[in-house]
């Protein structure tokens, strides 16, 4: 019940006894009237689940990073190229996850990390695109996200990104499904409370992609959004849809003062 309703105020996320990652931060300016402090979903999980994220040997997501690294070096498509052919080591992707989603090079769409990966595959490698929630895509986003671990978000919510941000905010406050619940109903109004067995967090995405113990696998940002709207007895938007990319930008902006965790572990 209510006994465990508040995150442990003493919990500190230190990975491999070395990398300290802030899990609390002052709310970004645009959210100041809602929260003083934004908090990572890590704080709302049990001590055992939190511990899994504190050591790369225990973190089950790291297996998927290794598979992603194999993809990185694997030649695919008509051009006979791998990611490494052009980008060299995966460390060239440092900071990339922290900037997502962002307006594409042509300036006419908002792209998530998955879109950039598929653009390289189809336009530069002559390879087939990967489905949004396919294993190779999740392995690749896992490997790329790890390169931004501990880094500050660099997303833009003004200029060309602003209309997408506005659209995402609209979606965040829309009450979906037969249960008529918005993201804000659960993650803003009721963060810290229990909804049945689940401790409601602020629904931040700085920890994504995440390893979910319940699914024994990686869950993408849009995969989580699908699950949350389905739980309202609603019909979710499709992973990769314009709606979910806009929502991704808006949700990212609610946690833009929190560092990227690389790969989180959730129950």
């Amino acid at each position: 019940g209510a006994a465990s309703a508040d995150p442990d105020p003493t919990a500190t996320l230190i990975v491999n006894d070395q990398i300290e990652i802030a899990t609390r931060a002052p709310a970004p300016d645009h959210l100041k009237d809602v929260f003083d402090t934004v908090q990572s979903g890590w704080l709302y999980r049990t001590e055992e689940t939190r511990a899994l994220q504190m050591d790369d040997f225990d973190n089950p997501a790291m297996v998927f990073v290794d598979l992603g690294l194999e993809q990185w070096d694997g030649v695919d498509g008509s051009e006979g190229k791998s990611c490494a052919s052009c980008h060299q080591g995966i460390d060239s992707m440092k900071g990339v996850r922290a900037s997502m989603p962002k307006v594409n090079p042509a300036g006419n769409d908002l792209w998530s990390l998955e879109n950039f990966i598929n653009a390289c595959r189809t336009q530069r490698m002559g390879a087939e695109e990967w489905k949004w929630n396919s294993d190779p895509m999740k392995q690749m986003t896992a490997a790329i996200s790890l390169q931004s671990r501990g880094m500050a978000s660099t997303i833009r919510i003004d200029g060309a990104a602003e209309p997408y941000w506005e659209q995402g905010r609209e979606i965040y406050y829309t009450r979906y499904g037969q249960l008529e619940l918005s993201c804000a109903n659960c993650h803003e109004q009721n963060a810290g409370k229990m909804i049945r067995a689940d401790h409601l967090s602020q629904g931040q995405i700085n920890g994504f992609p995440t390893y979910r113990l319940k699914d024994s696998g990686i869950v993408s940002i849009h995969g989580r959004f699908v699950g949350c709207i389905r739980d309202t007895r609603g019909e979710p938007f499709k992973p990769g849809s314009p709606e979910f990319r806009a929502l991704e930008l808006y949700v990212a902006s609610r946690g833009m003062t929190l560092p990227i965790e690389g790969l989180s572990v959730r129950h």
Binding site: T174, R175, Y176, G177, Q178, L179, E180, L181, V226, I229, R230, D231, T232, R233, G234, E235, P236
Partner: peptide
């Protein structure tokens, strides 16, 4: 939620199927 209400929902689903 409103348990005895029909109509007026945004993107209602077929139970918890997501359809």
């Amino acid at each position: 939620p409103s348990f005895y209400k029909v109509g007026g929902h945004v993107r209602p689903g077929d139970g918890f199927t997501g359809n």
